[in-house]
Every structure is written in C-alpha cells, then in structure tokens.
Write a protein that binds this DNA or RNA. Sequence first.
DNA 1: TTTGTTATTGCAACTCAGTTGCAATAAATT
DNA 2: AATTTATTGCAACTGAGTTGCAATAACAAA
Lengths: 128, 128
Amino acid sequence: MGIIRKTKSVKALLNEFGHNKTALSTLELVERLHRQMNKSTVYRILERLEDDGILHSFTGQDGLTWYALSDNNICKHPHHLNTHPHFQCRDCGKTECLPISIPIPEIAEHSIDSVSLLLVGRCADCVS
Amino acid sequence: MGIIRKTKSVKALLNEFGHNKTALSTLELVERLHRQMNKSTVYRILERLEDDGILHSFTGQDGLTWYALSDNNICKHPHHLNTHPHFQCRDCGKTECLPISIPIPEIAEHSIDSVSLLLVGRCADCVS
DNA sequence: TTTGTTATTGCAACTCAGTTGCAATAAATT
DNA sequence: AATTTATTGCAACTGAGTTGCAATAACAAA
C-alpha cells in the first residue's frame, strides 16, 4: 500500500506541509487545494502518505483529523510515530507536533500498543 | 447549565454506568436506551451531565465519543478531570478510565489547559 | 516515443455520528 | 391543582469522511 506514483496532486499536497512541524487539518487542506484536486483525492492521498509513514495523523480537540510530517528530523521517533504529543492552541487553532517524548509507565494487566497525547492550551503568540 | 431536573431518562442513563470506571460510547448508550428515549435525548442528557461534572467525555481511537463517570472515588482528580489517561482495548473494545496520573512536563512557550491521553492496546482478557 | 498496464482521480451519491427547531410533555414550585 | 419552564420526541438537517465507477495519467516496456 501507500504512495506508488508521484502525481502532481501528491506533490502539491506535500508542498503544503513545507518542512516544519505544524499540523494541518484535512479541512484546511481540502480548502487550500480545492482548485487543484477533488476532496476525495485529498483524503485518499493523505491515507496513502500515512500508510507510507510520510505523514501521521491524530484527532484534534474539535474531533477533526489533523496530519503532520513524520520527518525523522522533526519528530525524532522513527519507530514510535504516535508517541510524541501534539499541541493545539485553543485561541488561534495552531496545531503542532511537540518534539519531546512523554514517558508512559507500564499499566498493570494491560499491554499498550499506541499512545495518543493531545495538549490544549495557548501558544506563545496567544499567551497574553 | 447542566442537569436541573432528575427525569426518568436521566436516571435510566446514569444507571447504565453503574459504579465502575468503564466508559460507554454514545452509540452504545443510544442503542441500549433506544426503547426508553430518543437519540437526541441521550445526546442532550450526556451534555448536561458533563456540564455538571458528573460525566466526562473523550474521543476513542475510532473517533467516537465516549463517556465515563467523574466520581471522585474513581478518578481521584476532582479539579483535573481530563488529566487521567483512558485505555481502549483494540480487540474487545473495552474502554476505561485508568486511575493513575501521568506527569506532563512544562512546555516552553506554551501554557497547557488540558490533556487528552488515550492508550490503545490489549486488556487483561485479550492478552493471549 | 509510442503503447500497454493499472494506479490515480473526478464526480456524484452516499454514510453516519451528531445537531437543531419546534410543538408536546412532564418535573418542580407555589 | 394550577403554573412555569426544563425536557423530550420527532423529523429534518449538517458536515466530515467514504465509495463505486468511468475517465485519466503515471510509469514501464518495447
């Protein structure tokens, strides 16, 4: 599975992420790209890029799905892509990967496969 | 806001939770109670019970909303209801509050208001 | 570079969790 | 019991995300 062909749509979508750790919601991407490709295409490309490990997704506070680059240079956790926390600013909505690792203790009687950690608060620009 | 009248529907819904820390999805509740009350009523009661701090909600791995009791005897964090982790079994779907506290470090340049932490894995019954 | 294969896309219709407006009903108060 | 108004049922709606299928465009092979 995953990306097999580097189409114009794939390149255009990846271009939106640039090289930083800011996340984009599917809705934001659909809106930004709606003249270049269909809504279904955005969803399908995101799915393939995630299958390939190029992007990773998470759910924001609003229940929407967000995507961000899984670049090793950014996230530092090539084999544990989902273990870093994400931050969402409750004022401006800016959402990003936090390049830190939060230790999760062993839980008695449970085996843990993945961790989703979302921090909601105010970013530097919005803290008054 | 919150619950003002203790109606039969409110009592029936709370009765589904019993006294444990197992969470229930809105869909499960709608299904269980569909002969006793309307779907809209389930959603509206859940909203009011959460406003009152009697229940708290979180998003499961599937994107569905889950609710669990916020009883102080269970969750231990009366003023930080959202800071305990939730666990969802990827095999049987059982979802519960974990009565532990995961320390979240200060994040430079960010103020944190709430923490959502979902652990996905296998529960004791499903670990082979 | 042309041809053949098939991954990818556009489109429109669909799914489904959750929401809403409003009239009818039923708690709680006097 | 009468009054007030929070709550509920219902049906229609919303909106993110999905799907089937025919048309299109990467890419490989010749």
